[in-house]
Design a protein around this nucleic acid. Structure first.
Lengths: 237, 237
DNA sequence: GAGACTCTGTCACCCGGGCGACAGTTCGGG
DNA sequence: CCCGAACTGTCGCCCGGGTGACAGAGTCTC
């Protein structure tokens, strides 16, 4: 598979996890990387799989999720171009923790595990970088755990919308933050492990309050502070 | 504060996170460590605090928890002698993620942040070790998230009991695994964010099935496989 | 061994949110 | 422009588990 060095370098430089890296390391990464393409809906890996490497998204979206025994899906994250994922198994040599599937046509950069490990071994100054990456994931997990433990549905949804706004939001001229994902209610429901009708009810309520604006498969945040307050458990309903 | 090098060295060698370290590093750690004592119920740190260092438990127990806006407590972990905690803030330089309080009289080893960081900088071969530590925490978090998202109360309790058995269990001659913690129902309830009466009901049910044995403030696991099945969502009620 | 404290069993009541269902709306492709 | 697919709003019913409350049992202390 051919690899577009231009695009790949741009991707690596764009990622916040590689932005701080010295230029030669960026080049090393590009040299190590292989290209991988996936069609819509194709599975990249499943929980429990042996890990092949560390991935960077170049095009399309990658859906990270967990499957319950009854088949219900918990949608953990959506990675977009510039995002890197799959590093956990690189460090502890254990199987994948989640399922990963392509959303739309996806182009990935794959850094095979042996190459990745060699790179780290050769240049230990890279470690702190990845430690911060893991810490960030841990903190995000803790936040999610707390929100699930303490908040009712409305709070959990607010929490998630705040997060989505910060990860995928585009500020509009009028101050609103449009979430740049295709976001049907079903999808939101899977993120906060609720049902679609409940999400519908709460979204309507938030819209009525003026905290958000709704469109077909799309959500905009109008009052981030209000959502944040709800996410903090200030249930001034 | 005086530090008992004998005991400290033993502690460091006992911890699974330091067992693999070369002897000289163990000695380094002891040299770096300060002693800290806390009375029952004393708070070591709170979420949001600036982090002072990395801790090792020598005596007593440390309760790690999260507080909801309404004052409810989520009990995340109980650390016992040999356990190390508080490393996340060492790596990302951000505040504490949870509250930590002493349970009983507690003796701690404290490795101050600057010393800890210097140690790592001097010997990058330590990194992989801590990366694995973070990965392990991540995987535990993911497990918790999944259990909270997919399982009903009974499954969540089973999940937690399996974990407690593996972390704090002592195998008895008769094959039962006694959980070596003071475990009133209230405490279990706080771990799985449920209420005490519900936990009572479910514990009774599990006892009736023969999966566990109950005593005053104490739980033993009799049928680990059964609990594991429940924790996996096989709700053959 | 008496009293206090902690823990446990078990009520009756209530409610958030799941479940199933169906009609209405928006969108995209031929 | 029309049809089918995807998405949304909204029912009524039901149930797991929360709430509050109280009595009984175990344990510790002096």
């Amino acid at each position: 598979m051919q690899i577009d060095k231009q695009a790949a370098t741009r991707l690596i430089e764009a990622s916040e996890w590689f932005r701080e890296l010295p230029a030669d390391v960026v080049q090393q990464l590009v040299t190590l990387a292989r290209m991988k393409t996936l069609g819509d809906g194709a599975r990249l890996f499943a929980r429990g799989d042996e890990a092949d490497g560390f991935y960077g998204v170049m095009r399309g979206q990658v859906r990270i999720s967990s499957l319950g025994a009854d088949g219900r899906e918990l949608l953990v994250a959506m990675f977009e171009p510039g995002a890197w994922f799959g590093e956990i198994s690189m460090f502890d040599d254990l199987p994948r923790t989640h399922d990963a599937t392509a959303q739309g046509d996806v182009e990935l950069l794959l850094i095979p595990k042996p190459a990745f490990r060699r790179l780290l071994a050769d240049d230990p100054s890279l470690y702190p970088h990845f430690m911060r990456m893991l810490c960030r994931k841990l903190r995000r997990s803790f936040g999610y755990i707390d929100s699930a433990a303490f908040l009712p549905l409305k709070g959990r949804l607010a929490y998630r919308l705040v997060e989505l706004a910060s990860l995928h939001g585009q500020r509009q001229p009028d101050g609103a933050i449009t979430i740049g994902l295709h976001l049907p209610q079903e999808e939101l429901a899977r993120m906060i492990s609720a049902t679609r009708p409940s999400v519908s009810r709460v979204l309507k309520a938030l819209e009525a309050e003026g905290s958000i604006a709704l469109a077909y498969g799309r959500v905009s945040v109008l009052d981030l502070e209000r959502l944040q307050a709800l996410a903090d458990g200030e249930d001034s309903d």
